[in-house]
């Protein structure tokens, strides 16, 4: 009895180790949140005095066509920027799970996009997208396809940006799923082989369901990151042409740091965060359902 008592007290003592981090968190993360809520309730331009307006910023936001269009665009972008990296990433994980010569080296090369500086990468893609001189249209012409305007046309700008996002973040999906594959039990597959199952059948009926929890982790992370995507979109198009690639994040940036509508932008932050949390929670709920199914 005394032992549990003392170990309980010791557990409390260990909380002291967390105090410095807590102070930093309060200063750098919690305070901004509280202050953002405060600002979102005011009419506030950077240089002029603030004025209490209650929920007016939120009401204006709901009526703002440009904001609503940005939300729609963000969802389209997110859907594409989750589906492509996850599908290709799972395939890549299956490939890299096999033993083959130079596996370590080739895997290191494959994960380079993930650690490369996004702005630098976006810059190279900007040059590759160039309609007249870009290398992508040249490659298309080699296989007999017509040239594309890529990020220079409202119709193709979102898919083109998704291409960059897919290029950069598929390796992360691959790594997560690869970790799942490495942890799989071998027995179900051995018995399937004995039963004469084909490779595709084994993948679909045994491997995929078993790694599904890892795939779902990848889906959740990809969703959060795609909703938040900023660096590449901002570097390549800054929301253009026109507003054709203006996602919530780009809209937020322009409101806050081009127009300095601090109160309005703070309301955007709150709505944006609610959207991200709602998406993540519904995906997590879906994951629970899948687990019990």
């Amino acid at each position: 009895m005394r032992r549990t008592g003392s170990s309980y007290r010791r557990r409390d003592k260990y909380l002291r180790f967390v105090v410095p981090a807590l102070l930093v968190i309060v200063a750098v993360i919690i305070f901004p949140w509280v202050f953002t809520v405060f600002m979102s309730l005011h009419d506030w331009q950077v240089a002029s005095p603030r004025r209490w307006v209650g929920l007016a910023n939120y009401a204006n936001l709901l009526e703002d066509e440009r904001f609503r269009a940005a939300i729609g665009r963000t969802f389209v972008y997110t859907l594409l920027a989750v589906v492509f990296p996850v599908v290709i990433g799972v395939a890549a994980a299956v490939v890299f799970h096999r033993e083959f010569p130079l596996r370590g080296l080739l895997r290191s090369i494959y994960i380079l996009p993930m650690v490369a500086t996004p702005v630098a990468i976006a810059l190279v893609w900007t040059m590759m997208f160039h309609p007249q001189l870009g290398v992508l249209n040249y490659l298309l012409s080699l296989v007999g396809l017509p040239p594309s305007l890529w990020v220079y046309s409202p119709q193709t700008v979102i898919p083109s940006l998704v291409l960059v996002e897919t290029w950069q973040w598929t390796p992360l999906v691959m790594l997560i799923v690869l970790g799942g594959l490495a942890a799989l039990p071998v027995e179900p597959m051995e018995s399937a082989v004995i039963d004469g199952a084909g490779a595709w059948q084994i993948f679909r009926d045994i491997t995929l369901p078993l790694v599904m929890p890892f795939v779902m982790v990848a889906v959740v992370l990809r969703t959060i990151d795609a909703l938040k995507a900023f660096d590449t979109i901002f570097t390549i198009t800054q929301g253009g042409p026109g507003v054709a690639s203006e996602t919530i994040n780009i809209y937020l940036y322009l409101q806050a740091f081009s127009f300095f509508r601090i109160g309005h932008a703070s309301a955007v932050v709150i709505v944006f965060f609610v959207i991200i949390v709602a998406c993540s929670l519904s995906l997590l709920a879906l994951r629970q359902r899948l687990r019990w199914a």
């Binding site: 901004p32 950077v46 994040n249 740091f257 932050v269």
Partner: peptide, 22 residues
């Protein structure tokens, strides 16, 4: 909080920081 900060867009910290640092 780790998860919350993972979900928060970096940009949303920036408005309060910008005001504070000013």
């Amino acid at each position: 909080f780790v998860l919350v900060s993972r979900m928060t867009p970096g940009l949303s910290f920036l408005i309060p920081w910008f005001m504070l640092f000013r």
